[in-house]
Design a protein around this nucleic acid. Sequence first.
DNA 1: CATCTGTTGTGAGTATCCTACTAACGGAGT
DNA 2: ACTCCGTTAGTAGGATACTCACAACAGATG
Lengths: 257, 257
Amino acid sequence: MTDDEDENESEGEALAAFERLGLTTYEAKVFIGLHRIGSGTARDVSQVVDVPRSQVYGVAERLEERGLLEVQQSNPIRYRPVSTDEARELLRDRFEREQDRAFEYVETVKRESTGEETQEDIWTVRGRDQVDDRTVDILSQADERIVFGTRLPELVTDTIERTLTERAAAGVTVVVVSRTPAVRDRFADLDVVTVENLPAQRTDDQRSGRIVIADDDSILLSVVGNEGSETAIWSSGSLFASVLIQLLEASDELQLE
Amino acid sequence: MTDDEDENESEGEALAAFERLGLTTYEAKVFIGLHRIGSGTARDVSQVVDVPRSQVYGVAERLEERGLLEVQQSNPIRYRPVSTDEARELLRDRFEREQDRAFEYVETVKRESTGEETQEDIWTVRGRDQVDDRTVDILSQADERIVFGTRLPELVTDTIERTLTERAAAGVTVVVVSRTPAVRDRFADLDVVTVENLPAQRTDDQRSGRIVIADDDSILLSVVGNEGSETAIWSSGSLFASVLIQLLEASDELQLE
DNA sequence: CATCTGTTGTGAGTATCCTACTAACGGAGT
DNA sequence: ACTCCGTTAGTAGGATACTCACAACAGATG
């Protein structure tokens, strides 16, 4: 119906979410509509959810094949949605299956190149989560020493903290640098050296994000934009990386030993 | 390129799987192509994977926003895919997020109706997995007694077995009926009554699937089609259900007490 | 009994949007 | 002058949303 649509905007979000999960808008609408009314006929559904009645039959059929609703063979046909828990399980199973199928092939054609990068590459990563991932990745490859610095406590995720302590336990010299007490406190009672002093004006910048140095061959630098978005550059195993590391460490008092 | 496409059909499946995961074919192709070559420019990608070079830039941009690849700001621009593990995590996170968003709304508009169905409804369920789900659902609602019967051992999934024993432990009288020893053996050492005798010709049918009776108000009957596909009808809390149950139990020697 | 009315389920046809695909262009480096 | 890069516009095709028409059927009314 006409005004069922815009009365609730969270419905729009739910619809969009369902579409991103692989349903068409009609399928999403019918599924939602059926949950509204518990169970009902094609007409019932079309009245609460703005899908032409004549379309409900086909849509419901596809939903039945997916296991998202059940059909009562009567006249008129009645439909009944499965519980939300069941639906979630169905969608999750399907997702995992598709993911396995997709990545199984990627694994077979994947090139070994990862690991021994001889190229002079500096990569850019956008988005906090992606930077988190790359950070952990670089940290876990460290064998001898790690320098981790950030001004913002929220950039020390649990996974990063865990990786740092795990590396420290493995014999890696870990140094956490921050002028923010909240960051230092997180590593206070751990086998990790924390330093307050910073390379002066450089890291004092308002937009600085994190610094990650692993051994002499991997480095990551990130900045935080005005809207809170984080962007990082990183390099691993490249001449570029080692030079950059030396430059950074020569320019300040981060001499650890 | 023209012949890169059909040389490997499993690539086609992987592409389709990626599309069902929400990527466009171009996005899937670029992602796969980048994993083939480790890293490379738009031209490199377009040469191994049949995407016009001019399209690679935009596609890669969208992939970067999703965190599936990283960009090297140089001339020419170089691209690098994230590891398959990272990609899987990203997609999984996204999936869970979307699912939460979608079902959160459904929960709010869901009608309470489930549970106390006063309507005379018989529902149809197609597909083995869906029948499994409904079976478990009905079994777990039993308070006093359960009759579960099947000729086919593969229709006794682990979850079903677990639910049966769990209900038995909760004080429910559980009777498993089967002429197939393999089925009876599964419950041999459990606190469950197993019966060999069957209601004669009725259940002897080649196409019979399972029988589930829970208390006096829920029943499920399934048949197995020629191609192995299973279809079930079930009813819960309806007059129809109780009548059907009485009919079934009166017609044979399933008098338990 | 005939007719009328309303509903159901199915099917065909159109419109609209997204994606795949092609072509062209300015600019930078050689 | 040439090649290559990155960008943009514009077209084509396919899937989906949407409308309309129709046969079958049931109940009501005359």
